[in-house]
Design a protein around this nucleic acid. Sequence first.
DNA 1: CAGTATCCCAACGGATACTG
DNA 2: CAGTATCCGTTGGGATACTG
Lengths: 132, 132
Amino acid sequence: MATTTAGQRREQARRDYDAYLAGCPTRELLSTLTDKWAALVIAALAGGPQRHSELARRIAGVSQKMLTQTLRTLERDGVLTRTVTASVPTRVDYELTPLGHDLNPVMVSIKTWAETNMDRVFQARARYDARS
Amino acid sequence: MATTTAGQRREQARRDYDAYLAGCPTRELLSTLTDKWAALVIAALAGGPQRHSELARRIAGVSQKMLTQTLRTLERDGVLTRTVTASVPTRVDYELTPLGHDLNPVMVSIKTWAETNMDRVFQARARYDARS
DNA sequence: CAGTATCCCAACGGATACTG
DNA sequence: CAGTATCCGTTGGGATACTG
């Protein structure tokens, strides 16, 4: 057959793109993904849709500006959807797309890794600082 | 028994730390990990030790400054080791620690995700830009 | 080769004020 | 509530020059 599956096409894409190359568009996409706020937002949406204010409360310390900016970028990249409910006051919900759900486990794993290994990192820092 | 395994202690750590909290040290560790250069460096070291110049060549476009800075931070956090061989000219090798090997698959998965899904992101951007 | 030290500009990102 | 706009200090990060 001449037809290719979506999986085959993605496998081909993985071979064609290379984030080690400076000019590759994946380099810029990697920049978007390797972002503290993006990781927390995507992880927070694992359980289902969240309102803007819910995300702001959950991700303590994020500014209005950074939260909106992060959400916009992720919306544009097809990771999440933004749904406006016309009411007073306005209600806006954010939800992961299938692409976003695909990405979610990866982002969660970074956050979990940090939480799980914080102590080991502390010990490493103590050793490093001790001999400097 | 009163003894706890390393696994149990790490599970406890995961419960004690929470990157959603602004003051949590994992928030800052997350910042370090969610870094374009850190991701590429850690991914590049999967196959074994690499010299400074090898890393610089492999990670196209990285500046001397950023590469050294990234390597220093990761060394301090116990992710990799820096080994100096006294010769002329000096030879320096970087290698993942057990902690680094633990982190490696996570970082590789982000890079791979970007390479695999670049096309889907392009399509999403085209749709988003078309209705704006 | 590996690294440090400056210089310097662009961006990141917080604070605040204002709108539908 | 959700978002935009502006101001403004801090940091990121490249370019260049110099050292063991």
